[in-house]
């Protein structure tokens, strides 16, 4: 295997919030075409770790490198051209149209006085098409349902076109077929364009199916990472969620479910 530059790499990353350790000496390498699932119980620091990877939270020690360059060497704009984040919730104090929201993703590529070009608009419309929101282009964001908002946030991320996509619960609020659509879309984006994705997921079975690597946050700074087959074991999952997890073999693969205590 040839040595490739990872899209994102952490070196001895120490991160804690209010004296609560999230990870200790974390050395993470995410290579092109990889899809990482980030698992852990509520409040264990999944979102904070995602923010640290994006340079939006300063770690206590260690460093984060994007495509071989330390975050501290890069400007906010440069980071935003490589790494994009889809957050859990969006703000609607100032409602704008769905198309305008998707166009926000083009911000890092435009200069102060520039207006979005026809090419930018085409990119935004294609992103809306990809998440099935083309018909809503001129609706206002405050009239959207929770699930439509999630898909719009994803469209803005697609319009931003980052090499590394950091997604905080991308399938939250989505009904079943949209969950699958979104994860299929991410898989296709990652495979076709040599991107990488790190996503916070709560559904172990979706992680099993749509990720090739997982990272488990156990709290107190303990992190377990590796390929899905090695890390997603019954023992690890039961310890992670503090509840016995069992599995059943189906024709379409292994399925996890919470056991009865």
């Amino acid at each position: 295997m040839s040595v490739q530059i990872p899209i994102i790499e952490t070196r001895d990353l120490n991160l804690s919030i209010a004296d609560k350790a999230i990870c200790r000496n974390l050395n993470l390498r995410v290579n092109p075409t990889e899809r990482w699932g980030l698992l852990g119980v509520n409040g264990v620091g999944k979102t904070s770790l995602l923010l640290a990877l994006a340079g939006l939270k300063i770690p206590q020690a260690g460093s984060v490198h994007l495509q071989g360059r330390a975050l501290s060497e890069l400007s906010g704009r440069q980071i935003a051209q490589i790494c994009g984040v889809m957050f859990q919730d969006s703000d609607d104090a100032f409602p704008v149209s769905v198309l305008e929201t998707a166009l926000i993703g083009r911000h890092p590529y435009l200069h102060a006085w520039a207006w979005e070009s026809a090419a930018d608009e085409a990119i935004a419309r294609a992103a809306l098409q990809a998440v099935n929101l083309s018909d809503c282009a001129h609706r206002m964001t405050n009239s959207l349902s929770g699930g439509e908002r999630r898909r719009l946030a994803l469209a803005a991320l697609l319009a931003q076109d980052p090499t590394l996509m950091l997604l905080d619960e991308p399938v939250n609020h989505l009904d079943l077929h949209h969950q699958i659509d979104v994860l299929e879309l991410l898989t296709q984006q990652v495979a076709q364009h040599g991107k990488a994705a790190v996503m916070v997921l709560h559904d172990v079975n979706l992680a099993m199916r749509y990720c090739d690597h997982v990272m488990m946050l156990f709290g107190y700074g303990e992190v377990l990472q590796g390929p899905v087959q090695e890390v997603l074991t019954l023992d690890n999952l039961s310890r992670l969620y503090g509840h016995p997890v069992r599995s059943v073999e189906t024709p379409e693969g292994c399925l996890f479910y919470p056991g009865k205590t």
Partner: peptide
């Protein structure tokens, strides 16, 4: 303020969103 106007559009979407898009 006019050269900042698009930054303001992004900031109106939320502060974290704005920072993630490179707005100082």
């Amino acid at each position: 303020s006019l050269p900042l106007a698009r930054n303001l559009n992004v900031m109106a979407r939320g502060e974290l969103t704005a920072r993630a898009l490179g707005v100082p």
